[in-house]
Amino acid sequence: MQRRILLSAGLALPIGSAWASPERFPARPITLICPWPPGGSSDAVMRAFAESAAAALGVPVVVESRPGVGGTLGATAMLRAAPDGYTLTQLPLGIYRLPHMQKMPFDPLKDLTHVIGLSGYTFGLAAMLDAPYKSLQEMVAWARAHPGMLTYGHTGTGTTPHLAVEEFAHLAGFKTQDVPFKGSAEITQAILGGHVQMMSGTLEFAPHVRAGKLRLLATLGSQRTKAFPDTPTVKESGWDTVTESPFGIGGPKGMDPAVVRVLHDAFKKTLMDPKVLETLDKFQQPVIYKSTEEYGRYAVRIFEAERLTIARMGLAKKG
């Protein structure tokens, strides 16, 4: 009799009650994968986003570092993650590029849910202070006179800092000796230690430029950076190449649109958080907001654009 009363009471509960509704999202911590090493600009930025999103969502957002393979390990992890919104990753530009260069375990258009576009990287070319050149033009002249002797560090084969220099070198007619690292923090230490002459990476090396330990030769975007307004872009210097690299947040394919909306709204709020904006400004990363729909359309466009770029550079995978 008591059991029947309890069942009847349960059936009488309103549809919106906790007993009758599915689990509220989010109800537990969320993992946000940063596919770059700890200690670098990407790590700092993703942690700022995670802390701010946690406040908006009401649950912890835990950053997990999975560096390697040109920043694509987060996308690879999505193949095994449940599409419940509790595992997310940063989506750097490389995930749309590397599938055109080599066999990858994921398809960026079929295996991911694009949640929101957030920001983008500003890249630059910095040289050792005692390098035998003091400007971009002098560097090109030296590299032409010493074929293959210009050593530079980048964030991994096929990443934006790597291909930016290779395309520039092709246009300018010089050869390089590239040295891959896992992230900009490692490259910065290498160039400060004299192990490479030049580095291509995010502007987290800016403090060393200001301190007079490195020389900034050029930035790679379409416009000069406000941190170094007197430093020209590569395009301004006479070579028609521009490198910009937006990124955002994504999850596994098949996510519930209602969950995607909650995550989108929370991360959109982070773009108004003074602490997040301060961190972005520190590393010269602009706000590049894209809604869920816009970000999905962007993914389709950039995947095709990267295919054409890789084909033009002769780096397309065989077969």
Rank of each mutant, 00 (worst) to 15 (best):
L129M: 15
P180K: 13
Q223G: 01
T160R: 10
D178N: 13
H162P: 03
P180L: 08
A164Q: 13
T233D: 00
A206W: 02
L192M: 12
Q137L: 13
D240Q: 15
V196T: 10
G183Q: 02
H146M: 13
L192W: 03
T188L: 15
T155L: 10
R210A: 13
A145K: 10
A127M: 01
R215N: 12
I191R: 09
R215V: 11
L220V: 03
T151I: 02
T202F: 08
E166I: 02
S135W: 02
T176S: 08
A169N: 13
A141K: 11
A218K: 01
D130M: 05
A169F: 08
H154E: 01
E138D: 03
P246V: 03
A190D: 05
T151K: 11
E204Q: 12
A169T: 09
L163I: 10
A169L: 08
T219M: 07
M139V: 00
G148E: 07
L216T: 02
E204V: 00
K134W: 09
K235I: 00
E186M: 08
H154P: 07
A211R: 09
M149H: 14
M198R: 09
A206T: 04
T157L: 15
S200M: 10
F181P: 05
A172C: 06
V179L: 11
P246R: 06
T151D: 09
E204S: 11
Y152T: 09
H162L: 02
M198C: 12
T202E: 13
T241E: 14
T241I: 15
L214Y: 07
G156H: 11
I191K: 10
M139P: 01
F168V: 02
L203Y: 02
Q137H: 11
A141M: 04
G153N: 07
R210N: 11
L163N: 10
S184D: 14
G194F: 02
E186C: 03
D240M: 05
A227R: 08
G194N: 04
H162G: 07
W239F: 12
